[in-house]
Write a protein that binds this DNA or RNA. Structure first.
Length: 675
RNA sequence: GGCACUGUAGCUCAGCGGUUAGAGCGGAGGCUUCAUAAGCCUUAGGUCGGCGGUUCGAUUCCACCCAGUGCUACCA
């Protein structure tokens, strides 16, 4: 009984081009889908462009055209890029569709009816220049959790923390460069806390890799789940909320619903009923996503589906990020490589194979080391697999009329089918590749021993030659069947070479006999290092001209916006705080603390105080000893796990590397009060 | 500090309660010349992070420790 699989990859955002990082996911998913189709399951690969949000609206405004024009242009670009890599969606839709609007309405009505929607005022960042509230992705600043700079307003790609844009430090509008200000507006929220028990069970029920299930259980699900802000006030490009006019659904509401809407559109084209896939039809729903959007797919999304009576995903497959040469992709180093740029220089099969050889079921980051990439592709694809055909296909015009005795080689390869299939099924493509390459090694050993080139010289051994070639070409074909999910192009060429289509996983079980052999053509070229270099060069963006030296300082309002002024206090209030000049007489690291330094401060004479200060991320102890600082002398002592802290040292900055300890001008003496 | 994951040959990684721990790549030596300078053979003497425990027997299970990574805590 074939399984019915509804498979999705995350919807790429309409505003950007596809790059090699995206492709990890689309290739991974494509391989998984192709595998299932090959084994005879009914698999549907659904994707779409994620179109809504402020970003699209602003871009349309800037370029003086409609959102729809942008969507059409980018949809074409995305699909061309995907097609270039052999990624074969069954349907590629758009979240800006009527089917999506209707479905969002339906799910919203269900959330309302279930009493999960609450409304309250939200203070949000507002761009006074652009005249609109700022979407998460349109605010950049410093991550409040880890201090990484240049992060978007919804999550940190450094530490994967999620937060709200108002939590961002040093926020700046990427639209206008203006410092955002705070404004209030009414928002709709979906309550998630009622789902916690359900989510706890669901995420632990095999829908996620155990590592990820644990991670979610230990992070998000330990505390009360915060209400989810699902609306944005106009102007906003998206679907208006039917019962809250002037408000629009936040893009993360309608984006995942787009999985279903895109299925609906596919069904409409094919005379199918979408409910067979999403509502009690017995289909398995599989989502492939990156670990950065785990939150949305394993908490919000199941809650929405459950409320609306739609099937829950059978499995959420989560992968890690792509690094290139061991580092985050970098525009200046030329490792931020667009799909199109890659296609301009290199064969997409290389990348499909390399990713496959590295992907496992775990959400580990995948490193594209370019030297390893070239070595692996050349060794495996060219040296082992393609070479097998290349070295035997030219000797004989056709395969032997019956498959000869090969000492059990083909049978041993056929017996690997289940193990390789299990590896594909589990998402452990690395293991599948290893097993396949092991078979390729055995096949090459066979050729070596049979030495068809020697047999060719002796006309009396023509039959033996034919047998040797029949075996090696069948072994080659067997490999191509196993590799077909990864390398559909190679499988097609192998089909052509031997005049027999590779159409099913079972084709690896039956050797061919008697087939005519087509004239041999090169199957896979070696990786040309010059082209690799050219690709890097084409991707490298010269780093922006070094900022004009010693330019006048620009005091933007980011810091103030990130932390608005406190309410007025009286002079008497201020006087309560006794600030003193102090000298750091000793600074030392505290065992087991990542952020804390232990400071011994002198107030003059024999007066000393011990302070534990959270400045270790920005200062080394030796930088501090001897210098003067400003010290809150009358702060109530605080017992910390490291010891008693008798006050605090005054500092500014958002944290992490950006901490600036205050010091008085020269001449001040320890013990003097700051007035 | 807590939670999780990882720690196996120069590199990338398999493996796993049981004979002398494996593969690929790289390196070294040899063979071959059919093939896209591909292939085959030999070789790497690695405390399987450390220390204990369970066991007839552990790289494989358990405890603890160390290191790396991620999240999290300490910032009065």
């Amino acid at each position: 009984m074939p399984r019915r699989l509804l498979v999705t990859a995350a919807l790429p955002y309409v505003n950007g081009h596809i790059h090699l990082g995206h492709l990890v996911e689309y290739i991974q998913t494509d391989i998984w889908v192709r595998f299932h189709k090959l084994v005879g399951n009914q698999a549907v690969y659904i994707c779409a462009d994620d179109t809504h949000g402020t970003a699209t609206m602003i871009r349309a405004r800037q370029e003086g055209r409609s959102e729809q024009a942008i969507i059409a242009e980018m949809a074409a670009a995305h699909q061309a890029d995907f097609a270039g890599f052999g990624i074969a969606f069954d349907h590629y839709g758009s979240t800006d569709s009527e089917s999506n609007r209707q479905l969002v309405h339906r799910i919203w009505a269900a959330l309302r009816a279930a009493g999960h929607v609450v409304e309250r005022d939200v203070t949000q960042l507002y761009d006074p220049k652009a005249g609109c509230f700022l979407a998460d992705r349109f605010v950049k600043g410093t991550c409040p959790k880890c201090g990484a700079a240049d992060q978007y307003g919804d999550s940190c790609d450094k530490c994967a923390a999620t937060f709200s844009p108002t939590e961002l430090k040093n926020a700046v509008s990427t639209l206008s460069g203006a410092t955002p200000e705070l404004r209030s507006a009414k928002h709709c929220f979906v309550r998630l806390e009622p789902f916690r028990a359900f989510l706890k069970e669901w995420t632990a029920s095999g829908t996620l890799h155990p590592d990820m299930a644990r991670w979610i259980a230990n992070t998000f699900l330990v505390d009360e789940l915060r209400d989810w802000d699902v609306s944005r006030p106009a102007p906003y490009f998206g679907f208006e909320i039917p019962d809250a006019p002037g408000n629009y659904f936040y893009v993360w509401v309608d984006a995942p619903v787009g999985y279903i809407a895109s299925t609906i559109d596919w069904c409409a084209k094919n005379g199918d009923d979408w409910k067979r896939w999403w509502e009690g039809g017995g289909a398995e729903i599989h989502h492939f996503i990156g670990k950065d959007i785990t939150y949305f797919h394993t908490l919000f999304w199941p809650a929405m589906l459950r409320t609306a009576g739609i099937d829950l995903p059978a499995k959420v497959h989560i992968h890690g990020f792509l690094t290139v040469n061991g580092e985050k992709m970098s525009k200046s180093k030329g490792t931020f490589i667009r799909a199109r740029t890659y296609l301009d220089h290199l064969d997409p099969q290389y990348l499909r194979y390399f990713y496959a050889s590295k992907l496992t079921a775990r959400a580990e980051d995948l490193d594209l080391n370019l030297d390893e990439f070239a070595a692996k592709v050349n060794s495996d694809l060219v040296g082992k697999v393609a070479n097998l055909a290349s070295r035997t296909a030219k000797f004989v015009p056709r395969l032997a009329a019956s498959y000869p005795d090969d000492g059990g080689l083909f049978a041993r390869g056929a017996a690997e089918a289940d193990a390789i299939a299990a590896a594909y099924e589990a998402g452990d493509f690395a293991e599948a590749s290893r097993r396949i390459m092991a078979l390729a090694d055995r096949a090459n050993e066979f050729v070596e021993q049979a030495a068809p080139w020697a047999l060719k010289k002796d006309p009396a051994k023509a039959a033996e030659l034919e047998r040797a070639c029949t075996v090696s070409l069948n072994l080659f074909r067997q490999l191509c069947v196993y590799l077909a999910p990864v390398l559909p192009g190679l499988a097609a060429e192998a089909s052509h070479l031997l005049g027999a289509p590779i159409a099913a996983w079972g084709d690896a079980q039956r050797p061919l006999a008697g087939n005519a052999i087509a004239p041999f053509q090169h199957l896979v070229a070696r990786v040309d290092p010059a082209k690799l270099q050219a690709m890097i060069a084409a991707s490298a963006v010269e780093s922006p001209a070094a900022a004009p030296a010693a330019a006048a300082p620009v005091d933007d309002g980011a810091a103030l916006a990130a932390e608005p002024l406190a309410p007025v206090c009286t002079f008497e209030d201020f006087q309560k705080v006794d600030l003193r000049v102090a000298r750091v007489v000793a600074a030392e690291e505290v065992p087991k603390a990542k952020k804390i330094l232990k400071l011994t401060l002198s107030l003059g004479g024999d007066q000393q105080r011990t302070v534990f200060a959270g400045i270790k991320t920005a200062y080394k102890p030796e930088q501090l000893t001897g210098r003067l600082v400003v010290f809150v002398a009358n702060l109530a002592p605080r017992q910390m796990s490291f010891g008693l802290s008798e006050g605090m040292v005054v500092a500014a900055g958002p944290g992490d590397a950006e901490i600036f300890v205050l010091s008085p001008d020269a001449g001040a003496k320890p013990g003097q009060r700051v007035h």
